[in-house]
């Protein structure tokens, strides 16, 4: 691995000042489970690596009824997967956390690092100077694109690799960001950006900006949620397609609901038309069938990933059936 200096700030303000100074050529490390891969493969060659784990108070899970849940960015993924309140009340998030990588990596990786991780496109991870690395061509577009996006692509066709991001999108989470010496809070759907807006990055973070907290609004009593991830093998793997759903019911009707999909787009994907059609829906088998027919109607799959459209439709059918009918 290329040599670097390890900077270990003991306050957010120290880290912020250091990171926002462009002369420092610095990059953030939380768990390091993705960053070390990027350094080992020479995709990142920064001189200075800034450890966020030495900053106090960024590693905690707090819940207040009526207000909701906050998760510090440095919270370990295994702590999210095992948290009693998250398992009970925000099930989709615990289930997504449990689907990530392996136990060892969940013990090391953090929530902040998970939503900021870089794409897994194999051209990006290998020695190809593709568009995302400032080159002139997307090699996946006409190349090996079995695992690439079916919607929202162009000029880069990655899928966002984070499982948590999909669950957090279905939960309408917000992200708290720290820059230099001040904070701002933005909805998660504004955090992730499409390649048509900026193909070099997957989110709005700019040099030196730090994710410090995830904020999740409380769910009404009786709300149910779930995450299903399709992988190609039993051991660790990224999602081929995944779905996260959060549903509130009133009697046998769905009062409101939100579905997000992973593995289909360069950002966690959600469709207003589907979320709207869930409102006050008398959810029987027929209605669920109808919804699954119209999801991803605008998909434009690449040559080798048409299968993802069918997979996503069936996944939504399965997740709604589980949550609404088999309850």
């Amino acid at each position: 691995m290329k040599d670097f200096n390890y900077i270990q700030p003991d306050s957010l303000s120290q880290a912020g000042k250091y990171l926002s100074n462009r002369n420092n050529d610095a990059v953030i490390l939380s768990g390091g489970t993705d960053l070390l891969s990027l350094i080992k493969e020479n995709i990142y060659t920064n001189e200075n690596v800034v450890n966020l784990k030495t900053i106090p108070n960024l590693n905690n899970i707090k819940y207040k009824k009526g207000e909701g849940l906050t998760i510090g960015a440095l919270t370990k993924i295994s702590d999210v997967a095992e948290s009693k309140i998250i398992k009970e009340k925000f099930t989709v998030l615990a289930e997504a956390a449990k689907e990530i990588a392996s136990l060892q990596l969940r013990n090391m990786g953090t929530v902040g690092g998970n939503i900021c991780q870089r794409p897994r496109c194999w051209y990006y991870r290998e020695d190809f100077d593709c568009i995302k690395k400032g080159g002139g061509e997307c090699f996946a577009y006409q190349g090996e694109n079995k695992y690439h996006c079916i919607i929202g692509g162009g000029p880069c066709y990655i899928v966002h690799p984070s499982d948590l991001a999909v669950a957090l999108t279905a939960l309408d989470a917000k992200v708290k960001l720290f820059f230099d010496d001040s904070s701002r809070i933005i909805p998660i759907h504004e955090f992730f950006i499409l390649p048509e807006d900026d193909y070099l990055f997957e989110n709005i973070l700019r040099d030196g900006e730090i994710v410090t907290e995830i904020i999740i609004p409380d769910l009404p009593d009786g709300a149910k949620s779930s995450y299903i991830k399709i992988k190609e093998r039993e051991t660790w793997d990224f999602a081929v397609v995944s779905a996260a759903a959060v549903i509130s019911k009133k009697g046998s009707n769905i009062k409101s609901g939100k579905i997000a999909y992973g593995g289909v787009a360069p950002i966690p994907w959600t469709e207003e038309i589907i979320n709207k059609s869930l409102k006050n829906l008398n959810a029987d088998k027929n209605e669920i069938e109808k919804i699954s027919k119209i999801i991803l109607a605008d998909a434009e799959p690449l040559e080798k990933n048409k299968y993802k459209v069918i997979l996503a439709k069936n996944l939504v059918k399965r997740i709604l059936t589980n949550l609404v009918l088999d309850a």
């Binding site: 496109c121 991870r125 290998e126 090996e144």
Partner: peptide, 23 residues
């Protein structure tokens, strides 16, 4: 295999990179 889902084309392209996977 660890960098994502394995593709045959990539495996071929990276055989020469064996020496960079670790000191």
């Amino acid at each position: 295999a660890g960098t994502g889902i394995v593709g045959s084309t990539i495996l071929i392209s990276s055989i020469g990179a064996a020496d960079k996977t670790g000191p």
